[in-house]
Simulated scan of single mutants.
Amino acid sequence: MTCAAVLLAGCATGPQAPLSTAAVAPYADTVELDGRLSVNYLRDGKQESISGKFAWRQRAARTDVTLASPLGQTIATIAVTPGEAILTEGNKPPRSAADVDTLTAQVLGWPLPVSGLRDWLQGYAVAADGRRFAASPAQPKVTTRDGWELEFVSWQEGATPPKPRRIDASRGAGGDVERVDIRIVIDGAAAP
Protein backbone atom coordinates (compact mmCIF):
# COMPACT_ATOMS: atom_id res chain seq x y z
CA MET A 1 0.00 0.00 0.00
CA THR A 2 1.28 3.48 -0.82
CA CYS A 3 1.64 6.49 1.42
CA ALA A 4 -1.48 7.94 -0.22
CA ALA A 5 -3.47 5.25 1.53
CA VAL A 6 -2.44 6.69 4.88
CA LEU A 7 -4.18 9.94 3.93
CA LEU A 8 -7.49 9.12 5.02
CA ALA A 9 -8.45 10.99 9.99
CA GLY A 10 -10.05 9.37 12.87
CA CYS A 11 -13.42 10.98 12.61
CA ALA A 12 -15.28 10.75 15.89
CA THR A 13 -18.16 13.16 16.06
CA GLY A 14 -21.40 12.88 17.90
CA PRO A 15 -24.73 13.11 16.12
CA GLN A 16 -26.25 16.55 15.85
CA ALA A 17 -29.89 17.48 15.95
CA PRO A 18 -31.28 18.18 12.48
CA LEU A 19 -31.25 21.87 11.61
CA SER A 20 -34.30 21.79 9.38
CA THR A 21 -36.01 19.56 6.87
CA ALA A 22 -35.10 21.81 3.92
CA ALA A 23 -32.96 20.48 1.09
CA VAL A 24 -29.26 21.32 1.06
CA ALA A 25 -27.73 24.55 -0.16
CA PRO A 26 -27.70 25.09 -3.93
CA TYR A 27 -24.90 23.31 -5.80
CA ALA A 28 -21.75 25.43 -6.15
CA ASP A 29 -19.00 25.06 -8.76
CA THR A 30 -16.47 26.59 -6.37
CA VAL A 31 -15.95 24.73 -3.09
CA GLU A 32 -13.08 25.07 -0.63
CA LEU A 33 -13.21 23.02 2.55
CA ASP A 34 -11.15 20.95 4.91
CA GLY A 35 -12.04 17.70 6.57
CA ARG A 36 -11.11 14.29 7.85
CA LEU A 37 -11.59 10.85 6.43
CA SER A 38 -11.43 7.35 7.83
CA VAL A 39 -11.65 4.22 5.73
CA ASN A 40 -12.24 0.66 6.91
CA TYR A 41 -12.05 -2.14 4.39
CA LEU A 42 -12.03 -5.90 4.27
CA ARG A 43 -9.30 -7.47 2.09
CA ASP A 44 -8.66 -11.23 1.98
CA GLY A 45 -10.81 -11.65 5.10
CA LYS A 46 -8.69 -9.16 7.08
CA GLN A 47 -10.05 -5.85 8.37
CA GLU A 48 -7.78 -2.86 7.60
CA SER A 49 -8.18 0.85 8.23
CA ILE A 50 -6.54 4.15 7.33
CA SER A 51 -7.26 7.74 8.28
CA GLY A 52 -6.11 11.28 7.62
CA LYS A 53 -7.02 14.82 6.70
CA PHE A 54 -7.93 16.38 3.39
CA ALA A 55 -8.14 19.82 1.82
CA TRP A 56 -10.65 20.09 -1.05
CA ARG A 57 -10.40 22.91 -3.64
CA GLN A 58 -13.00 22.64 -6.40
CA ARG A 59 -13.58 24.87 -9.41
CA ALA A 60 -15.89 24.24 -12.37
CA ALA A 61 -13.29 22.31 -14.40
CA ARG A 62 -10.68 21.41 -11.79
CA THR A 63 -10.45 19.77 -8.39
CA ASP A 64 -7.33 19.75 -6.23
CA VAL A 65 -7.17 17.48 -3.20
CA THR A 66 -4.37 17.49 -0.64
CA LEU A 67 -4.16 14.35 1.49
CA ALA A 68 -2.41 14.52 4.83
CA SER A 69 -1.55 12.34 7.80
CA PRO A 70 -3.60 12.70 10.98
CA LEU A 71 -0.89 15.12 12.18
CA GLY A 72 -1.19 17.27 9.04
CA GLN A 73 1.91 16.20 7.04
CA THR A 74 1.13 16.24 3.30
CA ILE A 75 1.24 12.72 1.90
CA ALA A 76 -0.13 13.20 -1.61
CA THR A 77 -1.91 15.60 -3.91
CA ILE A 78 -4.46 14.81 -6.58
CA ALA A 79 -5.23 17.20 -9.45
CA VAL A 80 -8.32 16.43 -11.52
CA THR A 81 -9.10 18.14 -14.82
CA PRO A 82 -11.33 17.05 -17.69
CA GLY A 83 -9.74 13.94 -19.18
CA GLU A 84 -6.90 13.51 -16.66
CA ALA A 85 -6.17 12.90 -13.00
CA ILE A 86 -2.65 13.14 -11.57
CA LEU A 87 -1.49 11.83 -8.19
CA THR A 88 1.78 13.11 -6.76
CA GLU A 89 3.27 11.36 -3.71
CA GLY A 90 6.47 12.60 -2.09
CA ASN A 91 9.53 11.91 -4.25
CA LYS A 92 7.79 9.35 -6.47
CA PRO A 93 7.05 10.10 -10.12
CA PRO A 94 3.48 11.39 -10.66
CA ARG A 95 0.90 8.79 -11.68
CA SER A 96 -1.95 9.62 -14.02
CA ALA A 97 -5.11 8.13 -15.50
CA ALA A 98 -7.98 9.32 -17.65
CA ASP A 99 -10.19 9.83 -14.59
CA VAL A 100 -9.73 10.06 -10.84
CA ASP A 101 -11.69 6.95 -9.91
CA THR A 102 -9.51 4.80 -12.20
CA LEU A 103 -6.40 6.44 -10.76
CA THR A 104 -7.36 5.83 -7.12
CA ALA A 105 -8.37 2.23 -7.89
CA GLN A 106 -4.93 1.65 -9.50
CA VAL A 107 -3.06 3.19 -6.56
CA LEU A 108 -5.13 1.75 -3.70
CA GLY A 109 -6.46 -1.46 -5.23
CA TRP A 110 -10.03 -0.50 -4.31
CA PRO A 111 -12.50 2.24 -5.23
CA LEU A 112 -12.21 5.62 -3.51
CA PRO A 113 -15.08 7.71 -4.92
CA VAL A 114 -13.27 11.01 -5.48
CA SER A 115 -15.46 11.96 -8.47
CA GLY A 116 -18.59 11.38 -6.37
CA LEU A 117 -17.24 13.65 -3.65
CA ARG A 118 -17.78 16.70 -5.91
CA ASP A 119 -21.48 16.14 -5.24
CA TRP A 120 -21.43 14.40 -1.85
CA LEU A 121 -19.55 17.15 -0.02
CA GLN A 122 -22.42 19.48 -0.97
CA GLY A 123 -25.23 17.02 -0.10
CA TYR A 124 -25.98 15.76 -3.60
CA ALA A 125 -25.64 12.43 -5.42
CA VAL A 126 -26.88 10.61 -8.50
CA ALA A 127 -29.24 7.91 -7.24
CA ALA A 128 -29.32 4.33 -8.52
CA ASP A 129 -32.29 5.25 -10.74
CA GLY A 130 -30.24 8.05 -12.38
CA ARG A 131 -32.13 10.88 -10.66
CA ARG A 132 -30.40 13.77 -8.90
CA PHE A 133 -30.67 13.33 -5.12
CA ALA A 134 -30.55 16.27 -2.70
CA ALA A 135 -30.05 15.21 0.90
CA SER A 136 -31.75 16.83 3.85
CA PRO A 137 -32.03 16.05 7.54
CA ALA A 138 -35.42 14.50 6.69
CA GLN A 139 -34.05 12.52 3.70
CA PRO A 140 -30.45 11.58 4.55
CA LYS A 141 -29.96 8.24 2.71
CA VAL A 142 -29.44 7.21 -0.90
CA THR A 143 -27.78 4.45 -2.93
CA THR A 144 -25.79 5.95 -5.81
CA ARG A 145 -25.71 4.81 -9.40
CA ASP A 146 -22.25 3.28 -8.83
CA GLY A 147 -23.36 1.30 -5.76
CA TRP A 148 -22.35 3.49 -2.80
CA GLU A 149 -24.78 3.56 0.12
CA LEU A 150 -24.66 7.11 1.47
CA GLU A 151 -25.96 8.50 4.72
CA PHE A 152 -25.72 12.20 5.50
CA VAL A 153 -25.41 11.64 9.25
CA SER A 154 -25.05 15.18 10.60
CA TRP A 155 -25.26 18.77 9.45
CA GLN A 156 -23.16 21.91 10.01
CA GLU A 157 -24.49 24.06 12.82
CA GLY A 158 -26.05 27.35 11.79
CA ALA A 159 -26.02 26.59 8.05
CA THR A 160 -29.25 27.64 6.33
CA PRO A 161 -30.02 25.84 4.12
CA PRO A 162 -28.32 22.80 5.66
CA LYS A 163 -24.81 21.73 4.63
CA PRO A 164 -23.42 18.24 5.36
CA ARG A 165 -21.07 17.80 8.32
CA ARG A 166 -20.63 14.00 8.34
CA ILE A 167 -21.18 11.55 5.49
CA ASP A 168 -20.93 7.77 5.80
CA ALA A 169 -20.41 5.80 2.58
CA SER A 170 -20.36 2.00 2.20
CA ARG A 171 -19.90 -0.29 -0.75
CA GLY A 172 -19.55 -4.00 -1.30
CA ALA A 173 -16.87 -5.74 -3.34
CA GLY A 174 -14.72 -3.67 -5.65
CA GLY A 175 -11.11 -3.99 -6.79
CA ASP A 176 -9.37 -6.36 -4.41
CA VAL A 177 -11.54 -5.68 -1.35
CA GLU A 178 -14.76 -7.27 -0.17
CA ARG A 179 -16.19 -4.15 1.48
CA VAL A 180 -15.29 -0.47 1.99
CA ASP A 181 -16.73 1.86 4.66
CA ILE A 182 -15.78 5.54 4.59
CA ARG A 183 -16.56 8.25 7.13
CA ILE A 184 -16.12 11.83 5.94
CA VAL A 185 -16.24 14.74 8.38
CA ILE A 186 -16.28 18.26 7.00
CA ASP A 187 -14.54 20.58 9.42
CA GLY A 188 -15.66 23.68 7.54
CA ALA A 189 -14.71 26.13 4.87
CA ALA A 190 -11.02 26.30 4.07
CA ALA A 191 -8.94 28.83 5.95
CA PRO A 192 -8.06 31.87 3.81
Rank of each mutant, 00 (worst) to 15 (best):
E89M: 10
D146S: 08
A105D: 06
C3S: 11
I167L: 06
I78V: 15
A9N: 12
T88S: 10
L121W: 12
Q73W: 00
G52S: 09
N91H: 02
S49L: 11
L7F: 10
R95A: 05
L87V: 07
P82D: 15
L33P: 07
G52I: 08
T160G: 00
C11S: 15
G10H: 15
K141S: 03
R165G: 04
A85G: 14
G172C: 07
A85N: 09
G109P: 06
V177M: 04
Q58M: 15
L71T: 09
I186P: 04
G10I: 13
L7N: 03
C11F: 13
L87F: 09
A125G: 05
V153Q: 04
P94H: 02
L71A: 10
T30E: 11
A25M: 08
S20R: 01
R62W: 08
E149M: 01
P137T: 00
R131Y: 00
R145T: 06
D181N: 14
C3F: 05
V39W: 05
G174N: 07
A97G: 08
I182E: 01
G123D: 01
V24E: 02
T63D: 14
A76D: 03
W148L: 00
R179H: 15
G188H: 12
V107P: 01
L117I: 14
V6W: 13
W155R: 04
R145A: 08
D168K: 07
Q73C: 06
A12Q: 15
P70W: 09
T143E: 06
A125V: 08
D44T: 10
L117D: 09
W110V: 10
L117S: 08
A173P: 14
A79N: 15
P94K: 04
G158W: 05
R132Y: 05
A190I: 00
R118T: 15
W120G: 04
K53S: 15
T2S: 09
V177P: 02
D64L: 14
A55T: 14
D168H: 06
